[in-house]
Computed example of a mutant assay.
Amino acid sequence: MQPNDLERIARQIRRRDLQAVVEAGAGHIGGEMSAIDILTALYFHVLRIWPEEPRHPDRDRFVLSKGHTACALYVTLAKRGFLPEEEISTFLQPHSRLNGHPNCNKVPGVETNTGPLGHGLPVSVGMAKAARILGAAYHTYVMTGDGEMQEGSNWEAISSAAQFGLNNLTLIIDHNRFQQGASLSDTNNLAPFRSKLEAFGWEVTEINGNEMSEIVPALQHRADRPHGIIAHTNKGHGISFMQDRVEWHHKVPNAEQYQIALAELSESL
């Protein structure tokens, strides 16, 4: 797909994500909006996947370590054909398999359960190491939040990935500069990330994580060592009153805000 096609799909995913959060009365919309361009590029251009065979052994793996943004993943999976699009209406409803954090035992296309931060990257290192042991050709991608990088388990995993020479592993840091309750600069700010990853022996690319022309080549890049992508994004991207506002980590739009957001996300569809 061309970048403009991917951008159109990303807008459609944003609209459906917005609708799902409003209908459910809960969600983590700010971090979902920052990540959707990357999710779109992965599932509609980069990943080698078969929606009709979600456990195909040759599939590429993607782990959403920032699991609280599950709704964006569900909408993306549905649009890609892993589950019925109408099922998105059950998000957070009683007995729904579309819970607030992804569950690999219930949702096709989810590789591992995530929610407690700092777990997705260590699991992904295991997946990439397993591919090496088995002689498998699949590539493993994992997305963390930038606040999540405060978890020490991530840095142990980064060290291990370099030690094992896992050039079949790509880490994407959704660097939207905000976490729950505060900006990174007001908490435990580990940015800039580039020098730290490089110090562990990783190859690093920095991109605008809301720009398809930069996202796609970064995701497709292959190196002789683990690859880290620092994706500079905007919390609440695409919705003017949400962008770069800490309260939209998990705030839900009211009726008036919902209509404004829908109108903004309808532009250029």
Results as ranks from 00 to 15, higher is better:
71 C>K: 06
65 S>I: 05
68 H>V: 11
202 W>K: 00
25 G>L: 02
138 Y>R: 10
149 M>P: 06
231 A>W: 03
55 R>F: 12
156 E>D: 13
146 D>C: 01
38 I>K: 06
174 D>M: 04
102 P>H: 06
213 S>P: 03
124 S>N: 07
205 T>E: 14
112 T>G: 09
12 Q>L: 14
145 G>E: 10
168 N>W: 03
165 G>N: 12
217 P>S: 12
22 V>G: 04
225 R>G: 08
68 H>S: 12
139 H>K: 08
214 E>V: 00
202 W>A: 05
104 C>G: 08
63 V>N: 11
182 A>V: 12
20 A>V: 01
135 G>W: 05
84 P>W: 03
177 R>S: 07
191 A>K: 06
141 Y>I: 01
172 I>E: 02
230 I>T: 07
36 I>L: 15
23 E>H: 02
237 H>M: 11
27 G>Y: 05
47 L>F: 04
240 S>W: 07
5 D>S: 12
160 S>P: 04
32 E>C: 14
47 L>K: 07
138 Y>I: 10
37 D>R: 09
170 T>P: 09
11 R>Q: 13
113 N>C: 13
103 N>F: 00
152 G>W: 14
179 Q>R: 02
176 N>G: 11
212 M>E: 08
170 T>C: 10
41 A>N: 06
269 L>I: 14
11 R>I: 05
111 E>W: 02
238 G>M: 08
192 P>I: 01
197 L>T: 00
210 N>I: 08
128 A>T: 07
114 T>R: 08
253 P>V: 13
6 L>S: 12
92 L>P: 00
204 V>W: 04
88 I>H: 00
26 A>Q: 08
52 E>W: 13
81 G>V: 07
152 G>E: 07
127 M>D: 07
104 C>K: 15
80 R>P: 11
132 R>S: 06
33 M>Y: 11
75 V>K: 01
239 I>R: 05
13 I>A: 14
179 Q>Y: 01
244 D>P: 08
204 V>E: 03
85 E>F: 05
184 L>P: 03
247 E>N: 02
72 A>G: 15
104 C>R: 15
72 A>R: 03
95 H>E: 15
251 K>M: 10
155 W>D: 14
187 T>Y: 04
